[in-house]
């Protein structure tokens, strides 16, 4: 009896985890469905949308700038090691730019966006939920999805795309400066190799990724926000779950988009 109960522990754990994951996946699908239904025809509160575009986009701007500069610097340092080894300074702009535009910049910007916007979104919707503000909306015959979630979702998708473009640009500028001052490679040379060897599709791949990341962060953070229970502790836990789920989606979608488009 005892032995069997000990043996069943790992199975119980796996089972519970699977059920949890299935529940969350189902919740996210429902959320995506609810959002999709309200997109055709679009049912969005205009003023709310503008306010959210501002909150999501403009307020994340400084963090994205800092992240972009860091990413550019890191990539140039890493590329610099190889460039020096093979004495191919002419390729530094390509080496750093290629990886930045296609992979690193979208992922890093998305992770920061997830932390800044996704987490905040879950926290805000979650706080409204635990303080019964969402129920109050319902009793006023206002659809919480149209009023609360749609503007946030649209703002996140739009701004994620634009912020990745901004992040790409700052990463390149940061990279160019790093290569000038740390590696002693001229900025002109950096950008010449970049312009010669980078194609539009490298940049577009990053943008496509950004759109899917925006959708993922939007759906996930709204889902975890609207399903919060259990007061302040519950809000903290939901934010934690939300950023983790979004991060997994970001990496999985990164893989999917990369293989689909190439």
């Amino acid at each position: 009896m005892r032995l069997t109960s000990v043996l069943s522990v790992p199975f119980a754990m796996v089972g519970r985890r699977t059920l949890d994951i299935a529940t969350e996946m189902g919740g996210m699908t429902l959320m995506a469905g609810a959002i999709l239904r309200r997109l055709f025809p679009p049912r969005v509160d205009g003023a709310e949308l503008m306010r959210n575009l501002y909150n999501v986009g403009v307020k994340s701007f400084p963090i994205i700038l800092v992240t972009g500069v860091f990413v550019g610097a890191i990539m140039v340092i890493q590329a610099g090691l190889y460039v020096e080894k093979y004495e191919a300074t002419g390729f530094i702009g390509w080496g750093a730019g290629f990886a930045t535009l296609r992979e690193v910049s979208p992922i890093m910007i998305a992770l920061m966006f997830n932390g800044r916007v996704g987490a905040k979104n879950t926290a805000e919707i979650g706080t409204m939920k635990v303080t019964e503000q969402v129920d109050a909306l319902r009793t006023l015959a206002i659809d919480p999805v149209s009023y609360l979630i749609m503007p946030r979702f649209i703002a996140m998708v739009v701004m994620m795309t634009l912020l990745v473009v901004v992040g790409d640009a700052t990463a390149l500028i940061g990279g160019a400066f790093t290569s000038q001052f740390l590696l002693g490679v001229d900025v002109q040379l950096f950008f010449r190799s970049f312009v010669d060897l980078i194609h539009l599709e490298d940049f577009l791949l990053g943008v496509y990724k950004a759109i899917t990341f925006g959708i993922a962060v939007g759906v996930v953070s709204c889902h975890f926000g609207i399903t919060v229970t259990g007061g302040a502790v519950g809000v903290g836990r939901a934010v934690n779950d939300s950023v983790v789920a979004s991060a997994i989606w970001i990496f999985v979608l990164n893989y999917v988009v990369t293989t689909l488009i190439i």
Binding site: V71, G115, R116, A119, K120, T127
Partner: peptide
């Protein structure tokens, strides 16, 4: 504050931790 404060702290934490990691990465890679 209440649950708002917890949400704020968590958000702040992701952003600050990630920025700290990136900053240390630039420093140590350099």
């Amino acid at each position: 504050g209440g649950s708002e404060g917890v949400g704020w702290a968590t958000t702040q934490s992701v952003v600050n931790c990630s920025l700290a990691v990136l900053f240390l990465d630039v420093l140590l890679s350099g």
